[in-house]
Every structure is written in C-alpha cells, then in structure tokens.
C-alpha cells in the first residue's frame, strides 16, 4: 500500500479533530435523547407551533427581502459606483456585529414610535412581538448570505452572453430575466437556502424583538432556563432533525431543477 506523506497525515488528523469537534456535541445530544422523548415532544402543541412559526417567518423574510437583495447583488457584481467598497462592507455588517446588539438596534427601528412602527400602526400592525418583527430580525442577520452568493453568481455570468442577447434585439430587462438570472440561479438558490437556514437558527436578534410568539430557538432557551438541560434536549434534537431534512430536500430539489 502506498504510504501517505507525513504532512498529509498531519492534515488528515487535524481535519478529523475539527470534524469531531462539530459532530461530537450534536451526536452526544442525539444519543442522550430517546425516540420516546422525541415523539412526546413532537406531540406538544407549543413545540409544533414554534417550529412552524420558525419555518414560516424565516421563509417569508427570505422571499420578501430577496426581491430587493437580488437586484442589489446584480449592481454590486456588474456596476462600478462611488463608495462600492463601503456598500459591500455595510452588507457584511450583520455578520460581524453581536446579534443581541442587532436586536436592540432593530427594536428601535421597528418599535411603535419609529417611522416604520408608525406606518405599521396605520394598518394595525405592531412589529414588536409579531411574526413580521421576527421575519425582519431573521432577515437582518441572514441577508448577507443571499447578497454575497447572488453577487458571486452574477459575477460568474460572462458579460459577452448579455451583450450577445442585446445584439439579438432583447431589451436589458429581457436580458436580465432570460440570460443573467437563469445563469446565476444556482448561486442565488444556494444563497436563498443559506439565508433561510441562517434565519431559522437566529436567536439573539429575535429574542429582543419578539420573545413571544416563540420561535424554536427561543423555546429551547426558555426550556433550558426553566427546566434544565434534560428538557431542552428533545426539542433541540427535533428542531435540528427537521432543519436537516428541510435543507437536504431544498438542495436536492434545486439540483433536480438544475439538471432538468
């Protein structure tokens, strides 16, 4: 058998430790939870509602903000404008600031005395403690994933294809929808899935804006605080399992569409 070089062996060992670092806590938690506990937790109305709320708020936030985020990603990929680097930096801000601080900032932005809060009040909507507020908090922390992925996707579309489409009589709008967007689609979908996933896992910003209604990460925290580790575990395992199934399915669907 061919002997691996020493450096490669060291890298494999270090890589294995990193994988173990990620897998071990999750596996440990799953192994300490019996199937009976999971089924029992899944039967609880409060748990089911929170999981559903988490999925719906993250999904709607992703869809709503993508309408503006995708064109912004296109501009960043294709156009040069003053302060472009600053704009790129601003987009990455939500990733680097503490999410509880983001929640405090957002609370001021959506509370009743803010402009947005007052606009919401006109239609009887109070963002604080409302699923809409949760969506906003989730989107705030997760939107960089979509913008950056979509920007990379647009940058990867050869400009010659867009130019060719223009010479074939297509308007810039048609070029965007028939050439640019479909060719960047793989990255955009990947960004949408990442944004959705990141939104679902958000805790810090959401708990400040809306403790109730309770999304699953907040529910896990509450159960841990009120009843301890043992009671927080089953809902954690259930939520992780559902998240995994959801993202694997989404990725698989996106791949299927691509291959068609």
């Amino acid at each position: 058998m061919k002997r691996l070089p020493t450096i490669q062996l060291i890298f494999i060992l270090l890589g294995g430790l990193v994988l173990l670092f990620i897998v071990a806590p999750l596996l440990g938690m799953a192994l300490k939870t019996t199937p009976h506990q999971i089924f029992e937790t899944a039967g609880e109305e409060e748990v089911r509602q929170s999981i559903w709320l988490t999925i719906v708020t993250s999904f709607s936030g992703t869809v709503f903000f993508s309408v503006a985020a995708i064109p912004l990603a296109y501009l960043l990929a294709r156009k040069n404008f003053p302060l472009k680097k600053l704009v790129s930096g601003i987009i990455d801000l939500p990733v680097v600031i503490p999410h509880s601080a983001a929640g405090i900032a957002l609370l001021g932005f959506v509370s009743r005395d803010s402009a947005l809060g007052q606009m919401g009040s006109l239609v009887g909507l109070n963002f604080v403690g409302h699923p809409a507020g949760i969506s906003i908090a989730m989107a705030f922390v997760s939107i960089p994933y979509l913008i950056n992925a979509a920007r990379d996707g647009f940058a990867g579309v050869p400009e010659r294809l867009e130019k060719a489409a223009l010479t074939l009589g297509a308007s810039p709008l048609r070029v965007f929808f028939t050439i640019t967007l479909p060719l960047a689609w793989r990255n955009i979908v990947s960004g949408l899935i990442m944004m959705f996933a990141r939104g679902m896992s958000e805790f810090g910003a959401v708990i400040v804006v809306a403790y109730h209604p309770m999304i699953t990460p907040v529910l896990i925290y509450e159960r841990f605080g009120a009843f301890g580790l043992k009671y927080a575990r089953p809902v954690s395992v259930l939520f992780i399992a559902i998240s995994l199934v959801l993202f694997i399915t989404l990725r698989w669907l996106a791949k299927e569409k691509e291959e068609k």
Binding site: P158, R160, L161, K163, A164, L166, T167, L168, G169, A170, S171
Partner: peptide, 14 residues
C-alpha cells in the same frame, strides 16, 4: 444596441 439590427457573431460564439 437592440434597435440597430446589426448581428454580431462573437469569436467565442457566446
């Protein structure tokens, strides 16, 4: 461009 009705075949086909 789209109103010129001038056809261009690129070297890399595009």
């Amino acid at each position: 461009i789209q109103e010129r009705k001038i056809g261009l075949v690129f070297q890399d086909h595009a």
